[in-house]
Design a protein around this nucleic acid. Structure first.
Lengths: 121, 121
DNA sequence: GCTCCACGGTCTATAAAGTGGACCGTGGAA
DNA sequence: TTCCACGGTCCACTTTATAGACCGTGGAGC
């Protein structure tokens, strides 16, 4: 498969469409957090740590829209809202794991590249 | 490998560090564009289409810093600057292809999820 | 000689997006 | 009676991105 297909800003490239959603600050982290277990909003908030309520809220809504995440509201007081991965969301974890694996193994090389860059400058 | 490791906002998680660089608006697109061939700045600009000069410039500088991309300046007039993938950059394309492949095959499901969401709302 | 263009950027005003914190209603615990 | 947790939303403020002007150089055209 040709990676270049991911381009073409004009005309609604489907791949680009999906990558735009994925390539934001928080989506990957949220998906990662939901991998092992269903979580409630505030738990997710604390688990990730440095995401604001607003951004977490937006990210979750978009992930829900796109069918990665399921939102379940329990009519209780105080309210309880649980987020979990759908099958689609779980299937996305497969390539995502590959990406994280790459990041993990190549992180020293990235670090080295940065050091080399700083040394040149 | 455990995806949850990608979390922990505090304390400089290496995976998160790499994902933050990748998970921006343009990095993936630039890497995709450079996959088949070395390109000059303005060609890249036109190829991607909706990136601003400033963002392309920043994105390239960061990719260079992190060792994904190599920048070659030719002392000519008008100036010629070429960008190409390093081995590290090329190795990153492997998991990236998996991601794009996923996006490609599952795009109909994402579209369906969006339609279902709109219908519910 | 004089004008104009391409190139790879940077700089600047303006617009868009993100942040932290106040705020909301509810019911149960203290 | 007071207070808190929960899942958000709303607002003022800060950060980030955008579009477009601008820069120097040298060669082409006149």
């Amino acid at each position: 498969m040709n990676v270049t297909t991911a381009l073409s800003g004009e005309g609604g490239c489907p791949i680009r469409d999906v990558l735009d959603r994925i390539g934001d600050q928080w989506s990957l982290l949220v998906l990662a957090a939901l991998e092992p277990e269903t979580l409630r909003f505030n738990v997710l908030l604390r688990r990730i740590g440095d995401v604001s309520k607003q951004m977490l809220s937006r990210t979750l809504r978009r992930l829900e829209e796109d069918g990665f995440v399921e939102r379940t509201v329990y009519a209780e007081v105080p309210p309880r809202v649980e987020y979990s991965l759908t099958d689609l969301g779980r299937s996305f974890l497969v390539p995502m794991r590959a990406l994280i694996g790459w990041a993990d193994t190549h992180q020293p090389q990235v670090e080295a590249a940065r050091a080399a860059y700083r040394a040149r400058a």
